[in-house]
């Protein structure tokens, strides 16, 4: 037997053996796809409208409701507390000496989210309906998203929180990044986010969510007719939280 024959026989056997093994694997595969690969898009594009003329500076109803609904880590220690909604003081760069405004800040659910672009494991992503969400099962806690986010919306769970007010919802374990999900679990069920409900309950009604793709929704009408602003529009992230009276 010469070298040519040897190589032909050896190569042929290897190829046949491996293909048989893998063919067997595919033929007897038991993996069942539950919902199929095509999940229809909802066609929605959620956005939030914040009416700062109605928002009271001393009220924290939305922050507390959010914390209760989503089990946001809270130790009463500024080093480790997380806030999906924050209240900050904003002043204009162009209007020196102008009045400071109390503004609520939350994840802007950008159409071009920088956090999703930098995530090395695709844990942060934008859903079909425009909500930017962290998949905590995938998050490795690298905190790139916190650096990328120009709104400081991303928070990190520096330690576990035993406090668990809403048992229906998961809490986050130590070592993952998180931010507002626009209460996606409630929107999927057709309910309003916890903060919107709480704000309406106080009588202020400063917060509302709606479908930006629907021309008849309140948010679409308001954003197309009234003077609304988004925070740092110049960055090109296309945020979807609109402010009246900013």
């Amino acid at each position: 037997m010469d070298r040519r024959d040897f190589l032909k026989t050896a190569g042929g056997t290897l190829l046949a053996g491996t293909s048989c093994a893998y063919a067997f694997r595919f033929l007897t595969s038991t993996y069942a796809n539950k919902a199929g690969t095509d999940i229809p898009a909802s066609g929605k594009r959620w956005g939030m409208l914040v009416d700062l003329t109605q928002c009271r500076e001393d009220c924290t109803a939305c922050m507390e409701a959010c914390r209760r609904e989503n089990n946001v880590s809270f130790h009463n220690d500024t080093r480790w507390d997380n806030h999906w909604i924050r209240k900050i003081k904003l002043s204009s760069e162009h209007d020196a000496g102008g009045e400071e405004k109390s503004v609520i800040m939350l994840c802007n659910h950008c159409d071009r989210p920088p956090c999703a672009q930098v995530c090395p494991v695709q844990a942060t992503y934008k859903r079909d309906d425009g909500i930017v969400i962290v998949d905590h099962h995938r998050c490795i806690g690298c905190r790139y998203c916190m650096i990328a986010c120009p709104y400081n919306a991303r928070q990190f769970n520096f330690r576990d929180d035993e406090h668990w007010p809403n048992k229906e919802r998961p809490k986050r374990s130590h070592g993952v990044a998180e931010s507002c999900t626009l209460c996606a679990h409630r929107l999927d069920k057709g309910e309003l986010p916890a903060c919107v409900e709480a704000c309406a309950k106080t009588g202020a009604g400063a917060l509302s969510v709606g479908d930006l793709n629907d021309p008849h929704s309140t948010i679409s009408r308001v954003t197309s007719t009234m003077a609304v602003k988004r925070i740092r529009e110049d960055l090109g992230t296309e945020p979807k939280v609109y402010y009246i009276g900013l």
Binding site: A10, T13, F24
Partner: peptide
Amino acid sequence: QTLLIVVLMLVILFPLVYAVVGSAI
């Protein structure tokens, strides 16, 4: 010699085949 080589290759392949087939059963 051909027979020898075929047998040898199958022996070499055995762990792979065993793992792939075994995991599907």
